[in-house]
């Protein structure tokens, strides 16, 4: 198939950016979206033009490195990561607009690559259980109810890609935060730090400049792992409890 690609190009974080238009032929529907971009880059290199920079690593939908706003949708039209999106979701003659995640907390580094280190800093401010290596008790000494453990697992499948922030009109990272708070808060091991965790993470989230949550729900619709909005409610509940108890 033949496509018209409108791609955001930006030489560096400080340089101005803009949309460039490319025509690309010979796209097969078996290609993944990123392989389509590989093809474009191979053509650009042959022509002596600098290839389009974009992030990807595992290309099997789990590492969370790939991003891309595709025709106004985070990770494109299917509920999956960009690397798992295939060209059969498009048709011959389509125009595809490709932009980076837009958020001041995710500054553009180059073309479609953004800096998501703010997520690491949110985790640093409480997204863990303090258990020094070697200090752990026997694993089966603390049973965890099966449904709670499954609930925790579902929240823990977050891949930290940032699609929730990109899709949210407020640029909030509440879904990302809520997923971690729910994951750790659902397990018996996570209880001792449950309330200091939520206070620390929310403070860092706000300090970074992420927007507030207005419960619109675009995040969960864009989430390639289907993390539900419940986790944000859980976050709010824990935060409320923490505030009441003066954490």
């Amino acid at each position: 198939m033949n496509l018209t690609l409108k791609i955001w190009r930006q030489a560096s974080s400080s340089a101005p950016g803009g949309i460039h238009t490319y025509q690309l032929g010979g796209v097969s529907e078996d290609m993944s979206f990123l392989e389509m971009l590989d093809l474009l880059n191979e053509e650009l290199v042959t022509k002596g033009e600098e290839p389009v920079a974009f992030d990807s690593d595992c290309r099997e939908g789990i590492c969370g490195m790939c991003s891309l706003m595709i025709n106004g949708q985070a990770h494109g039209p299917e509920v999956t990561t960009t690397c798992q999106l295939h060209m059969r979701s498009f048709k011959d003659g389509d125009t595809i607009t490709i932009e980076p995640w837009r958020a001041s907390t995710f500054p553009v580094i180059k073309d479609l690559i953004v800096d998501r280190s703010a997520f690491d800093r949110i985790i640093q401010s409480g997204g863990y259980i303090s258990a020094n290596t070697g200090s752990a008790p026997e694993a089966n000494s603390v049973p965890a109810p099966r449904d709670k453990a499954m609930h925790a697992f579902n929240a823990a499948t977050c891949i930290g890609c940032g699609a929730c922030v990109a899709a949210c009109p407020n640029g909030s990272a509440s879904l990302f935060m809520g997923a971690k708070i729910t994951h750790l808060g659902d397990l018996p091991q996570g209880q001792p730090e449950r309330y200091s965790r939520v206070v620390g993470m929310v403070a860092q989230h706000d300090h970074e400049g992420f927007g507030g949550c207005t419960n619109i729900g675009e995040c969960t619709a864009a989430c390639p792992k289907g993390i539900p909005l419940d986790v944000i409610s859980q976050l709010n509940k824990d935060l409320r409890t923490a505030m009441v108890h003066g954490f």
């Binding site: 290596t133 070697g134 752990a136 694993a139 965890a144 099966r146 499954m150 925790a152 750790l184």
Partner: peptide, 21 residues
């Protein structure tokens, strides 16, 4: 020891109905 460590960190391993791994 690895399993003990990971459970303490909150790795949500699959569990049986009784809550054990």
């Amino acid at each position: 020891n690895i399993i003990d460590q990971c459970v303490a960190q909150g790795v949500p391993f699959a569990r049986e109905y009784g809550g054990l791994l």
